[in-house]
Amino acid sequence: MSYDTQTPQAPQPSPAALRNGLGTTALILGIIGTVSGLIPLFFWLAGILGVIALILGLVGRGRVKRGEANNKGVTTTGAVLGLAALVLSVVGAVITFTAVSDAVDEINKAVEDAAPKDPSGKTPAAGTADDPGDQGEQGKGLAAGDTSVYDDELKVTVSKATPYSPGEFAVGHTKGNKAYQVTVVIENGGKEKFDAGLVTADARAGEDGVTAEEIFDEKVGSGFSGTILPGKKATAVFAFDAPADAGDLTVEVSPGLEHNASQWELKVG
């Protein structure tokens, strides 16, 4: 009697048992992400799909190396397309933010061009309470404590600049510079409520008029918010960062699109 002494062969995995799903998914998401990246406004979608496709593609390639999948070309293509979608998302974000910034600049320019101008071509600014409509003496800025009064009886007053000590985690303060704070008071002397959320304050320092960055910390930087009812006042404190050798600070307060900005020339140092 004879016996078959051959060692039995281990069963080979069937094609159905191969785990090709990740590579296929990576390819699909990579294609969608890349197409989305071609449209700048969809940069966010391209970024999300690109990250997922890249991760799935890399994991799928790991399965191919371990013999758990056999779609190496698909997984590689999916990973590459995921990376391409990420690059396109960055480009799209830059294009989108640049376009928005340019649009805002154009709107601001249009508002400035629409503002009434005096014969000299300059936009007239609001003046003091004693002389409404005339910004200080011979076009100079207002002094500390002066009040700028508008036609609708809105009144803006800026205090003198006093030294300020920024908090430990303050934003906008540069080491070696000095910080100054001013108090801005807005009084609504008109008959309609005033939206204080549109009020902005900016500053320049020194003879060269360098931008004095606004400081934000736990004490300053919140500005104005809400509305001011007729006959009521609102107060906010602003702090600005100025070069150590600056001798003056020009503070400009803009009550909103319907009001021209007023400037105060403040002594510091």
Rank of each mutant, 00 (worst) to 15 (best):
V80E: 02
K193R: 12
L154T: 01
V158M: 04
A85S: 00
L88V: 00
A99M: 05
G197H: 06
Y150M: 00
A46F: 08
D134Q: 14
N260K: 15
R66T: 10
K65M: 03
A84Y: 05
T227R: 12
S262H: 04
A16L: 10
A46V: 05
L49H: 09
L54W: 08
R19Y: 06
G256V: 05
K232N: 11
D131E: 14
K72E: 13
G226W: 03
A103M: 14
G223S: 05
P119V: 08
L81V: 03
L38Y: 15
T128V: 07
Y180H: 12
V158T: 05
A69T: 06
P230F: 09
F97V: 15
A261F: 08
L88P: 10
G256F: 01
G139E: 07
T24V: 10
A244Y: 04
K122N: 14
K267R: 14
L198N: 13
T162C: 05
T128M: 09
V237P: 13
N188L: 00
I32K: 08
D118Q: 15
N70V: 11
L229M: 13
D195L: 09
G197M: 04
P132A: 07
E192D: 09
F216V: 04
A205E: 05
K122T: 13
G23V: 10
V100S: 14
G231L: 07
L142P: 10
M1E: 13
K117Y: 04
I55F: 06
D195S: 03
L54F: 11
L88T: 02
S101A: 15
A26R: 03
D245G: 05
H259G: 10
V268F: 11
T157L: 04
A126K: 05
T34A: 12
A10V: 14
R66N: 04
G82L: 01
G197W: 08
K233Y: 11
I95K: 08
K117Q: 05
T128D: 04
G47P: 02
L45W: 09
G47H: 11
T7I: 12
V64Q: 06
A103C: 02
A201D: 02
L86Q: 10
T123V: 15
A114R: 01
G223K: 05
T227G: 03
A79M: 02
G206S: 09
G190R: 04
E168V: 02
T235I: 05
D202A: 13
